[in-house]
Design a protein around this nucleic acid. Sequence first.
DNA 1: CCCAATCATGGTAGCGCTACCATTTGTCTG
DNA 2: CAGACAAATGGTAGCGCTACCATGATTGGG
Lengths: 342, 342
Amino acid sequence: MTKPRSRRGGGRPTIADVARKAGVGAITVSRALREPGRVSEDLRRQILAAVDELGYVPDPNARALASARAEVFGVLVPSLTNNVFAEVVRGIYDSLSDSPFRIQIGNTHYSGLEEERLLQVFGSQRPAALIVAGIDQTPSARRLLENAGCPVVQVMETGPDPVDMMIGFSHFDGGRTATEHLLQAGYRKIGFIGARMDPRSQRRLAGYRAAMEAAGLFDPRLVTTTPVPSSVSLGRELFRDALAKMPTLDGVFCNNDDIALGVLFECHRASIDVPKQIGIVGFNDLDMMQVSFPSITSVRTHRYEIGTRSVAMALAAIAGNPPEQRIVDLGFELVRRESTAR
Amino acid sequence: MTKPRSRRGGGRPTIADVARKAGVGAITVSRALREPGRVSEDLRRQILAAVDELGYVPDPNARALASARAEVFGVLVPSLTNNVFAEVVRGIYDSLSDSPFRIQIGNTHYSGLEEERLLQVFGSQRPAALIVAGIDQTPSARRLLENAGCPVVQVMETGPDPVDMMIGFSHFDGGRTATEHLLQAGYRKIGFIGARMDPRSQRRLAGYRAAMEAAGLFDPRLVTTTPVPSSVSLGRELFRDALAKMPTLDGVFCNNDDIALGVLFECHRASIDVPKQIGIVGFNDLDMMQVSFPSITSVRTHRYEIGTRSVAMALAAIAGNPPEQRIVDLGFELVRRESTAR
DNA sequence: CCCAATCATGGTAGCGCTACCATTTGTCTG
DNA sequence: CAGACAAATGGTAGCGCTACCATGATTGGG
């Protein structure tokens, strides 16, 4: 006469309740939910009705334990507030919202060690796929990715040696293209201003340097960087530093759009004419670049699409059809605007 | 002579492996990891050594299943890219990084239905706590929250009737304060410009209206809104609309800082003097408000702190000491800058 | 010095689900 | 029409962990 209900579970319906109600075996309920094609039309209807009536929702934890595979995408990004990564995450999120997969986000704070720690934690759940920003994993992080036993997509950049799959673009080329544009517009003393010099920023700087050296115009005093996190106000300060160091500066390639905006505001404040006295190029092409006065030339990157495409690649791999193109270069676009129209 | 290793698990060490190695029972290993105080010094050391040597990491899914409680915080926000919510999430994330709790983010896209759906999904995991943005849940979403069986924190706003706990500030008061500041500065034809008029924006608008009515200056033609998502470029367009509708406009309270920035840029473009001809006030006080030229007066909100404090409240409740203050008002600060210094 | 109360540890029995392996039925081939 | 084979369903045995309930060892008060 004891209650058969468990002492622990909150009393919510389980698969056995559904099975009883529908008059079938538990396993058939499980199949009806996961592989509808393998259950006859009739039973499926009956089962779905029972599910509905009881308000049954499968327990993802039990599911993960039994199948040794959690329906989770692990996503590792270096920052949650940086608009660039927020857009990537949004793309990932939107692409996954109609799938059974959940998302678990990890914030590495631009630290390789933190990334390792998070991979360890994420791995313990046997995720369905891992999406990680960047290609500069520590050796031990790379080993964790290789042994994760699930599809791995490195995003934001392309490089020669993917762990599994890769989607992004060349930051080196982006930096070079931006700089070449300034050179073509006639600017000569072109500075580089960058904050939070993560590996991607370093490669943009390298692209800048390559372009300047090719033009015979490179000078280390033109480069102003800091490891401090990027912000609009920092952009303003760095520009003042740059100008103090090199008063003849006539152009700047900014590591990102926040910096570029800070530079523009300082130009306003100091009555420096843009684009006549100084040309400005940003990176990422946030919405505000087209609105500012003057509007700012920037390198448009396809962040949202990197998110959606990375999910598509991972889902294909999970389904057993890994894309033949393991490295996808989405490129970028230089968007010319008033800030370099001299 | 058969391999005792399971057919499924990838062969990673389990608690039983650790127990065998340390020469203790499995349950003792479990305790040593979760309640160190209840295991003798000696055994604990032995066990931790075994854990280390084997590289054992507990399986969170098995743990959740056995204890009917997942070590997960469910976080529901209306947008991932809106800097305001990104800051809240960052605060949550940072406060949880030293705890065993993971984070699962849900993006409601400002939709009540989507929020319900996500609460349903999240609930199936028996999360340790739920943090949701806003206080305007649908009746059925509210029921889901009440029956979640875990601490619930509503964030970003305060209101009279919390599901469980609440932390934020009054958007009505924020809107009123901003508007009163413009009035005190001598502006009279003060417009309201807002995009994505979610419930919080509506209350800021109500605060604006209350201040204007108290001054006997309210006119519906001063209000320009749209349900379209907010952006800097939209701010510019809405300001042009507002000006076309009411050419004598001499001030604007903007629903958020992006809009305010768009307004400022349009003023530059149209050679409208700020603050002489037009006063501008934003909302949230993003970093760029202090850098722009002229710098923009804004209502500073404590987003990051809302995130960290919400976690502290939830953790306290989980530990069995729910805070006596179930409603925490973090307030806001009006930051006066050049854009209203007439 | 005995018995209760504590403390430290362990055994057992699930948590809710699915992998694996039947079993049953229907369908096709020669 | 037998035999082979596929399709549909079910039973059993865990997945790796912890709640619950012993058990034995230690303490301490009367």
